[in-house]
Structure formats: C-alpha cells, structure tokens
C-alpha cells in the first residue's frame, strides 16, 4: 500500500457558502473506497489535484451521515484557487483520513462547548452534527465568532439552529464584528444569542458544570489564548479543553516535517499527534498555539 496514492473522488455538489468559501460534497468513485473510508470529527484529508499539488483540509461533514464527505474550502492559495474553478462532476484525488480527531466517545454524556472563529467552523461543524445526530451528549453550545453576516459559514444551518436548536439540545450563540442590516435583524430576532463583538463576548454570563463539560476550539491562531482564558477563568480543567490546529502538512503521516512544533523537551507532529490537542499538551509543547 502506497500511502501517497490518492483515490478518485467525484464532486457531487458545490455550494457557495460565502464569496470566499465553497462547500464541496464528494463521493469516492470506487465503492470499496467509500466503505473503507471511516473518519472521526476533527480528522483531515489531503486533497490531490493531480499534476498541480496537494493540500490538507479538515472534514466538515459528520460520519453519522454516510455516503459522502464534505470539505469547506476557502479560496486563499494557489491550490484552493484552482479548487474553486472545479465543477460538479469533476474528479479529484483524496487520501486520508489523517490525524487523531476529537475523542467523541470519551465526551459522551457531557456538555460540549464548541468555540469557533471564522473558518474554524468547518471542523467543528463535523462535531456539531455528530453530537446532534448521535444524541449522546447532554447539551451542545456553539459559540461562533464571525466577521460579518456574509462571512457566516453554513448560514442556513446556523440560523436554523438559532431558531430550533434548543429543542434538540443545541444552543447557538453568534458574535459579529461588522454591523449590517442583516446582523441587526438577527440580533433583534435572537437576542441575547446574537450580539456585536468577538467570540469571547459570548461567554458573558455563561456558567457551566466544570465536572461535566468539554470545550472544543478551532479558529484563527490569535483566537486561542483569549478563548482559553475565558474557559480557565471559569475553572475548566486544561484536560477538558480540546483544540484543533493547522499547519501546511505535505504528507499528513508524520514524514515531511512541516508540522513539527515544540522545543527540545517535547516535539509534536500536528498531523500525527494532532491536530486535536488538549491544553495540557499546549502547555508542555511550546509553539503549539
């Protein structure tokens, strides 16, 4: 088995989530590959555009819904720019899944606080729907910080959950930075769940049972330390804080060295040892966040 070989996956559907992000729904061409592809929320795959190159991207669909996988791709580099020109029916290569993923079994029966900023919504969407679908979690909070109304990823899902989430054990809170009529409309309709500000503002007035809560964080690099501070202030143990990190891995399997972080006392490969880490690990491995 050559770990660098990629499998044909056909683009079933492309949805434009925002002007920058598209959601690609894919299915492996080979039915065996479809059956064999098992993943956990928080894992990632390597997308291979043959002849052009590869890039890592997290899975944003949930394994509870079988038959397809989804990738949320932001147009930001040369490869993703090309990915955005692809059409439904086109075939790309996929290999994976890689990484450890979130310990979903371990967290069963607990409350989950998902904290996401910007594109960090993509891997957490996998957790969100996994948790809702499985029904094994006491309550799910999603705190989502977005730049503007237009930047809200999976907007229809977020608005749906703002409206009906509580009935299925999921509370969504949204913070936006740029004011617009749409945001004000949301804020009026769903106060106090929607407010102007940053994601940490959503912690205001929030209390949780530290013995029975896990926090899962994903967002831009600057976000982590502020969010972690809010969680630690509320006495959540660092072992209950999970975060998923990004690097540009070339291999995804702990060979190429691009995701090595740490110092002489602790070296971690984000792709192999992560991309999900607890805050304890971040404390003992410098440079992780």
């Amino acid at each position: 088995m050559n770990p660098y070989q990629t499998y044909d996956a056909k683009i079933l559907e492309i949805r434009e989530l925002t002007p920058r992000e598209k959601l690609f729904t894919l299915r492996f061409v080979d039915s065996e590959a479809n059956k064999e592809f098992k993943y956990k929320p928080g894992q990632f795959v390597i997308v291979d555009i043959r002849g052009f190159g590869e890039f890592p991207i997290s899975l944003c669909s949930t394994p509870t819904r079988e038959g397809y996988i989804q990738l949320c791709v932001r147009r930001v580099g040369r490869m993703t720019k090309y990915m955005h020109t692809l059409k439904e029916g086109d075939v790309i290569g996929i290999r994976g899944p890689y990484g450890n993923g979130f310990p979903m079994e371990k967290m069963e029966g607990s409350e989950l606080i998902l904290v996401s900023g910007g594109l960090g919504m993509a891997p957490l969407r996998s957790v969100l729907w996994y948790a809702i679908d499985s029904g094994k979690y006491e309550h799910i909070y999603l705190l989502y910080g977005t730049k503007s109304y237009e930047d809200i990823l999976f907007r229809d899902e977020i608005i749906h959950l703002l409206k009906h989430g509580d009935a299925i054990g999921c509370t969504v809170k949204l913070a936006y930075e740029v004011e617009s009529p749409s945001c004000i409309y949301l804020e009026r309709g769903f106060s106090p769940k929607v407010c102007k500000g940053v994601v940490t503002d959503l912690f205001r007035g929030m209390e949780f049972d530290v013995e029975n809560t896990y926090a899962l964080i994903c967002g831009p690099p600057v976000m982590y330390k502020y969010v972690i501070k809010e969680l630690l202030d509320r006495k959540l143990s660092p072992g209950r804080i999970y975060m998923t990190l990004e690097r540009r891995m070339r291999c995804g399997i702990g060979k190429c060295g691009h995701c090595i972080v740490g110092t002489s006392t602790s070296i971690k490969y984000i792709c192999k040892d992560g991309p999900v880490f607890t805050y304890w690990e971040a404390l003992s491995t410098r440079g992780l966040i």
Partner: peptide
C-alpha cells in the same frame, strides 16, 4: 528529513510528483 513536494510537467499531459529535501 523535511521534504517539499512539487508536481512537474514532463510533457503536455504527463507529470511527476517529486519530493526534494526541504529546510526549516
């Protein structure tokens, strides 16, 4: 052991995926 991967064209329709030593 860090390596970088690049895809190169050998002719109009065929390419190769090459890895080369990279440096941190």
């Amino acid at each position: 052991r860090c390596y970088e991967v690049c895809d190169l064209w050998v002719n109009a329709y065929e390419g190769v995926r090459v890895r080369r030593y990279d440096s941190c």
